[in-house]
Design a binder for these strands. Structure first.
Lengths: 156, 156
DNA sequence: GCACGGCATTCACCGCTAGGAAACAAACAG
DNA sequence: CTGTTTGTTTCCTAGCGGTGAATGCCGTGC
């Protein structure tokens, strides 16, 4: 993910924009300007004139912070950023499988195996559960995309 | 919450400690040392020699980032932010248990053990107390969410 | 270009169970 | 006596998981 550089305070507007989209950014603070106190973990700042290496370090750190993947605990609680939702057993198993290959395609066969071990439900069952899962994940900012004939991809 | 100051790299050990306890900290990076790339949102750094105002700004920001949890004192008074409420004995024990794992799932069994030590009340008693607790906590901006078949989560 | 088949999405419904809510009653403290 | 705490019963609602059917989507073959 790209980390934006924002001159502060001259580009005040842009900063607000980026924040509202929760995009990572580094403020380049003018030499005589008081430091901005930003609680947002997706924001950092550095005072000009800045050492190029220090700036790079801050950019790298922000980039690392912005690729945090969702997590699923033993109680079926799926967390992403601030928010979380509880998943029922089957959906928890499906999400767990999707999470193992986050951002990559997971086949329907694999999902069926993981979701219904030792059984072989009708085709439609998986579809319905994916539908329900989609609705549950939406408020977290996660989505399941279809790859026709191949499977599903869990992503942001 | 206190924000720790850690000299880097000389206090490397202490930094690891603090991180494992997820306590907020600012690294004071020696002048000729490469900048540490820390993904941890509870960590920040500044290069020495540092402007005192800049350091304060970073400390403030970290402090704001650290989650403020509600507290329960020995008299059963629960405080959160500006507001507070008094809890009767059983509910105080329940909240105490939930607070120990703030934001995480606490099982019904555990709540029963803590709330009614040495007894074994009917299933429904806990439900009713959770209901009453919810009504009491609501004005404080706290909520108890159900995780079906698993337990309850206390959160903001 | 079009119709078809197959895949995928969505909806409505059912049975079942866990949890929620109301109302009442007993015990107790001030 | 009055208000609070706590337990109990009873009924209601919401969540979970499965099913069948209607509809939509899309590439393929003709």
């Amino acid at each position: 993910m790209k980390v934006e550089l924002v001159y502060w305070p001259s580009e005040r507007e842009r900063r607000a924009d980026l924040r509202s989209q929760s995009l990572p950014r580094v403020l380049l603070v003018a030499e005589d300007e008081p430091a901005p106190i930003s609680v947002d973990p997706m924001e950092d700042w550095i005072r000009l004139p800045a050492d190029e290496r220090d700036l790079q370090a801050r950019i790298e750190a922000l980039r690392g912070r912005s690729v945090i993947e969702p997590t699923l605990d033993d109680d079926g609680v799926l967390r992403h950023g601030e928010r979380w939702t509880a998943l029922p057993p089957i959906e928890a198993r499906l999400v767990s499988t999707l999470l193992d290959r986050f951002g990559k395609v997971v086949s329907r066969e694999q999902l069926l195996q993981q979701g219904w071990p030792g059984e072989q439900p009708r085709r439609n069952v998986l579809d319905v559960h994916v539908l329900r899962l989609r609705r549950r994940l939406e408020p977290l900012g996660l989505s399941i995309r279809t790859v026709r004939k191949r499977g599903y991809v869990l992503g942001t």
